[in-house]
Nucleic acid binder design. Structure first.
Length: 211
DNA sequence: GACCAGGCACATC
DNA sequence: GATGTGCATGGT
């Protein structure tokens, strides 16, 4: 597969090396992190996750045992903490009610069904759903985020106003369907995005400079 | 003090 | 469908 998109992947992988995503100790922790990191720097999420772990191992049971106010206070550092507290509880309540609180059981559903179930939960949109599918359930779903859209549009691969679903279709049309590739590529795009592709770009030194 | 972060729901046209 | 606004802490 030799196209411009795959070239970007190789350049980034060569420059940064494997990213080892998602930074979490369990699929369950990936889900929690995916909700907490919405429009929020990961650094702030790490503190929240550390706080949550003081209440015991991260399980549906342990987190649902917490009063909502306690849960929200624990994740305060991740911002939007009242919303995110509700969103977490929404998800956990669904798991508890229908899957005995077990993520493994939930993940037995086929990918398309899983995605619709996730999108049906208040607080889980396309990026969060796809992050969960790729990084927690290991499904071949490409995660789009603001960095991805920015990088691809600034390199004229897609128009600036491309929607989430359009960008996702475009990318998956130009890559082999491979969980490990999707995992690594998205992680690399976020990494280079943080370094160089902010709203106000600083392109000097970017591995994709002049590409 | 601005600006920004690994979005989403909801109201409105 | 597309566009606008509130949500909120913490680092640069």
């Amino acid at each position: 597969m030799h196209n411009k998109l795959f070239d970007i992947y190789r350049i980034l992988l060569d420059h940064y090396g494997p990213r080892g995503w998602w930074p979490a100790q369990s699929p369950f922790e990936v889900v929690v992190g995916a909700i907490l990191t919405q429009n929020t720097a990961w650094q702030n999420v790490e503190k929240a996750i550390t706080n949550l772990k003081r209440f015991g191992p991260m399980t549906t049971e342990n987190l649902l045992r917490l009063p909502e106010a306690t849960l929200s206070e624990a994740i305060r550092s991740s911002g939007y903490y009242r919303q995110k507290g509700r969103r977490l509880r929404n998800f956990l309540g669904m798991l508890a009610d229908r899957f005995e609180g077990r993520l493994d059981s939930f993940f037995e559903l086929p990918t398309e069904v899983l995605r619709k179930e996730l999108l049906g939960l208040s607080g889980i949109g396309p990026e969060t759903a796809d992050s969960i599918l790729l990084y927690a359930a290991a499904r071949p779903v490409f995660v789009i985020d603001t960095y991805t859209l920015r990088i691809l549009s600034r390199h004229s691969l897609i128009p600036e106003e491309t929607s989430y679903s359009e960008a996702q279709r475009w990318i998956t049309d130009h890559l082999p369907e491979d969980v490990q590739l999707f995992n690594e590529f998205h992680a690399l795009l976020v990494t280079v995005g943080k370094d160089f592709c902010r709203p106000r770009p600083k392109c000097s030194g970017c591995p994709l400079e002049g590409f």
